[in-house]
Simulated scan of single mutants.
Amino acid sequence: MKFERRDILLIVGLLLFMVGLLPFMAPIYAALVVIAMYFGIKIYVGRRKKSIEMDVGEGLCAECGSKIFNKRCPHCDSQNE
């Protein structure tokens, strides 16, 4: 989990969420909830990004949208031959 520029927006949003939780619970519990949400979101996004990278592979064909293997599209190249 590396820190990216968009994490600043996540942190600001979670801090505002924590301020909204303060009337309903103690500050330490609100902070714990926000910290758990931060790491939960980071883990979810990391796993999702990894699964998308595995699905895409080397890239997608611009014509048919299938996965590219060995720098060639299996569908479009077989039709051209």
Rank of each mutant, 00 (worst) to 15 (best):
I8M: 09
L9H: 11
L9E: 15
L10N: 01
I11Q: 00
I11V: 13
I11W: 02
V12A: 02
L15D: 07
L15R: 01
L16P: 02
L16E: 06
F17L: 11
F17H: 04
M18E: 03
M18W: 02
G20V: 02
P23E: 00
F24D: 04
I28Q: 02
I28F: 13
I28G: 01
Y29F: 13
A30C: 06
V33K: 01
V33R: 01
I35L: 14
A36Y: 09
A36D: 06
M37I: 14
F39R: 11
G40E: 01
I41N: 00
K42R: 08
V45W: 10
V45D: 03
V45R: 07
V45G: 00
V45N: 03
G46W: 13
R47Y: 15
R48G: 07
K49I: 13
K49D: 10
K50R: 15
K50E: 09
S51D: 10
I52S: 05
E53M: 11
E53W: 08
M54S: 10
M54K: 15
D55S: 12
V56G: 07
G57A: 06
L60Q: 01
C61Y: 01
C64N: 07
G65S: 09
S66T: 14
K67L: 08
I68E: 05
F69E: 14
N70W: 15
K71H: 14
R72S: 11
R72V: 09
C73V: 07
P74G: 03
S78L: 07
Q79W: 10
